[in-house]
C-alpha cells in the first residue's frame, strides 16, 4: 500500500510545468494593500482608460470605499458628469462607436487582470512602439497589430523597436531522407527611446505599476478580505479539529 502511494508520488515528479511560448513578460509586484498606489492607479484608469474601456462590474462607491476615497472625492475627481456614485464604471464612448473607430469594440477591462495576468498588462503597456505601417501608427510586441492607439504616448514618449535576425535550423524527414531546413525570423530584441516623454522611464514604469496594481484590485475586489477571512476560518477549523480528535480518541478507547 505505502509502496503504491510512493510510486504514485514519483510518477507525478515529471509533471513540472513547461514555459509557455509567447513574448517574455516582465514581472510586476502587485501589492493590494498599497492604497496610495491603488489610488494613483484608479486616477490613471479613470482618466485614460475609462473613456473607451468600461469596467462595468465595479461600482464607483465600492471602489472608493475599498481604496479609502470618500464618496465626495469620488464624485469630485473620478465621476463623469451625470453619474451617481453607486453607478457601474461604464465607458464614455458607446460600444458601437468603438467598433466603428477601431474595428473592434474596446473590451471591458474589469476582469482583464484575471484573463491576461498582471505581468502581461504591465509589459503590454510598456511595449508600444512606432510602426508607420500600422493603422494607428503604433504597434506592440506583446500584442502585435493591436487596434488600440498608444494613449499614454505623451508620458512615455516614442519607442522604436530593434529586431535581430534569428536563424532557425529544423530537421525533418522528407520521403524517408533527413532534410535540414534553415530559415530566418525577425525576433524582437530591445526598445530605443527615440523621443522622451514627460516622464522618465522610471516614473513611467512606476505609473504603469500603479495602473496594473489597480487593475489587479479591480479584477477581484474581495481578494484581501477573502485572505483575511481565510485565516480566521482555518484557525477555527484547527481548534475544532483538536476537539474532534479528542472526542474520537475517547470513543475509540472501547475498540480493541
Amino acid at each position: 500500500m505505502k509502496k503504491i502511494v510512493l510510486s504514485l508520488l514519483l510518477a507525478l515528479l515529471p509533471v513540472v510545468s513547461h514555459a509557455d511560448e509567447g513574448p517574455k513578460l516582465d514581472h510586476v509586484k502587485i501589492d493590494l494593500s498599497d492604497k496610495a498606489s491603488l489610488q494613483r492607479g484608479a486616477r490613471i484608469f479613470v482618466n485614460y482608460c475609462l473613456s473607451c474601456h468600461s469596467a462595468s462590474y465595479l461600482r464607483y462607491d465600492r471602489m472608493g470605499h475599498d481604496l479609502g476615497i470618500s464618496d465626495e472625492l469620488v464624485k469630485q475627481d473620478l465621476l463623469f458628469a451625470g453619474n451617481k456614485v453607486g453607478d457601474r464604471m461604464q465607458a464614455v464612448m458607446p460600444v458601437a462607436d468603438g467598433k466603428k473607430w477601431f474595428g473592434v469594440a474596446p473590451p471591458d477591462l474589469t476582469l482583464e487582470a484575471r484573463y491576461r495576468g498582471t505581468d502581461w498588462i504591465y509589459t503590454y503597456l510598456r511595449s508600444f512602439y512606432r510602426d508607420p505601417k500600422s493603422f494607428s501608427g503604433w504597434n506592440n510586441t506583446v500584442f502585435p497589430h493591436v487596434a488600440m492607439p498608444f494613449v499614454l504616448y505623451e508620458w512615455q514618449g516614442e519607442q522604436h523597436a530593434v529586431f535581430r535576425t534569428k536563424t532557425i535550423v529544423s530537421h525533418e524527414m522528407k520521403n524517408g531522407k533527413p532534410v535540414t531546413q534553415v530559415s530566418t525570423e525577425q525576433v524582437f530584441d530591445h526598445f530605443v527611446l527615440a523621443k522622451p516623454g514627460t516622464m522618465t522611464p522610471k516614473q513611467y514604469d512606476q505609473a504603469i505599476r500603479d495602473l496594473t496594481n489597480f487593475m489587479a484590485y479591480m479584477s477581484e475586489p474581495t481578494k484581501l478580505e477573502r485572505i483575511r477571512i481565510g485565516v480566521y476560518v482555518l484557525i477555527f477549523l484547527a481548534v475544532f479539529l483538536v476537539v474532534a480528535i479528542l472526542l474520537k480518541k475517547e470513543y475509540w478507547k472501547d475498540i480493541h
Binding site: 477549523l237 475544532f240 479539529l241 474532534a244 480528535i245 472526542l247 474520537k248 470513543y251 475509540w252 472501547d254 475498540i255
Partner: peptide, 11 residues
C-alpha cells in the same frame, strides 16, 4: 464510532 471518526475526516 464512525460518526466521531468521520467528523475528524470532515474537519
Amino acid at each position: 464510532y464512525y460518526t466521531v471518526k468521520d467528523i475528524v475526516g470532515v474537519t
